[in-house]
Amino acid sequence: MKRALWTALAVLLLAPAARAADEDAAEQAQRWELIHNAAFADRVLQDAGDAVQIAAPDRALDAALVPITIKLDPSKHIVTLSLFVDNNPSPLVGVFHFGSAISTDQIKTRVRVDAFTLIHAVAETADGQFLTASHYVKAAGGCSAPSSGQSAEILARIGKMQLRRERPLEGAAIPAQLLISHPNYNGMQMGVSGTNLIPARYLENVSVKTGGVTVFELESSISLSEDPSIGFTYTPAGDGAVEIVAQDSTGAVFKRHFDPLTN
């Protein structure tokens, strides 16, 4: 579904989301149907129940930096996870393609939220089921809002990465937070000249491997926050080192090697 999905969803950029504060359940359903049709065509989506659960703060701290946690049931053999902020101009935040080194217990990230909105997660299982969950978030202005004011610093460190990990117990999976410094300009923010919007420049692909084995590949978009953050859990493979390769929409490639954690 890779690129076709993005192409289909680009159309939604032209379809204005309802004014969220006024939005009722029918409008929410209509918006999601639009996204569903564009992203999954004739696939039947099932309610995920406990298999996929979204957590987010009731009151967003900062609409440009809304932390989202998606809890997954590892027994479901989930192979892809798509995340949508329904009322954003570009609803698809990203698609995670899981490799064999990931523990599919939870994924965390930070998103921009442009208007009060449902957030949807769709998990695809190895046996072809599509499980959905949703969560309502009260935040607004995160897409057109100016950048954090740290733009100069962020551009100076663009592509720098951090992998924050907890020391593992012997043989246990390792919870990790990957931070990639990138302005993730979404094309809706005014530049300092004041006459032009800053052209979109955002992370398109993030690949995480350990010892040559894929943890996940993420196709991402403009709804990811500035300085993207991705939380995941992996099981070290091979020598246990972690290799990150990220590419942005200008084609710039950023790579980083992280040594294995030692006890």
Partner: peptide, 10 residues
């Protein structure tokens, strides 16, 4: 916010 709603960009 309930009554404001988000302004569309620009």
């Amino acid at each position: 916010l309930r009554s404001l709603a988000a302004p569309r960009p620009f």
